[in-house]
Amino acid sequence: MIPAPFGYKRPGTLAEALALLREHGEDARLLSGGHSLLPLLKARLARPGVLIDIARIPGLSGITETAGGLRIGALTTHHEVEASPLVREACPLLAEAAGRIGDVQVRNRGTIGGSAAHADPASDYPAALLALEAALVASSPDGTRSIPAAGFFTGPYESALKPGEILTAVEVPSPPRGSGEAYLKAAQQASGFAVCGVAALVVPGPGGTIASARVGVTGVAAPAYRARKTEEALAGKPASPDALRRAAALAAEGVEPLDDFYASADFRRQLARVYAERALAEALRRAKG
């Protein structure tokens, strides 16, 4: 499978890339690792006239500590996130989610910015980014803006990015002190994509209670979502297996699950409940350390 012909540009700076994007408009697609885009090109699901290869633009990759957490450049590969001592220490949930993406080779090429911008409803990162209350930073000729993850993923393959914007970084605030986190997923056997992926972050409270919990769910519905009903059911409650099960039972409330060849809507609803319960229990276990 060879893609249809396209033009190829390799800008040296972000400003040049933004100018090219403005010049070519909807005929252009950005290329970084290419692990979301090239399969689309081969299958003729996308037919851009020009690819703008931003992979070598300086300053868009790497992981740095900020006052409130971590800043991860958009071009940082999944492997770099997975293996980073900084991420594993400060934000293990993100490293865990990165390590579950695709396979070794895919993680060597795919980038966090490319994955987020592609907004595949079965990708792993959205669950973790939602639970971590991360923000996605976009640049345009008019400047930069920060988009909360909760408002970034807007639909299947749709994000809040506007035409002409380039996603440049992901900012992840440090999780609350004492919290435990876990990402668990049921993977589609052939592709490794999430049929259901749940990222749970639990903050233990006094006397064996749960102070608060955050639950991000991917793969179940489009777009990925926060299971707010589950979170509300846990706040201030005893951290008992029963309480976890009752709260997790609400993990697919109010969403319309995807229904496809791999899993029916009912099965996805059930997976969301089961994986939410397991992820919450594991997060709690890790919080207790």
């Binding site: 290419g34 692990h35 695709g102 080779q105 060597n108 090429r109 052939a190």
Partner: peptide
């Protein structure tokens, strides 16, 4: 497979294993 699933086309690109069916030659310049 030509769809970045099977790994038969794996090569090392700057010391990293990649699926060469899902890399454009120009990306490897």
């Amino acid at each position: 497979c030509e769809t970045s699933v099977c790994g038969a086309c794996t090569v090392l690109l700057d010391g990293k294993a990649v699926k060469s069916c899902t890399v454009l030659a120009v990306q490897a310049e």
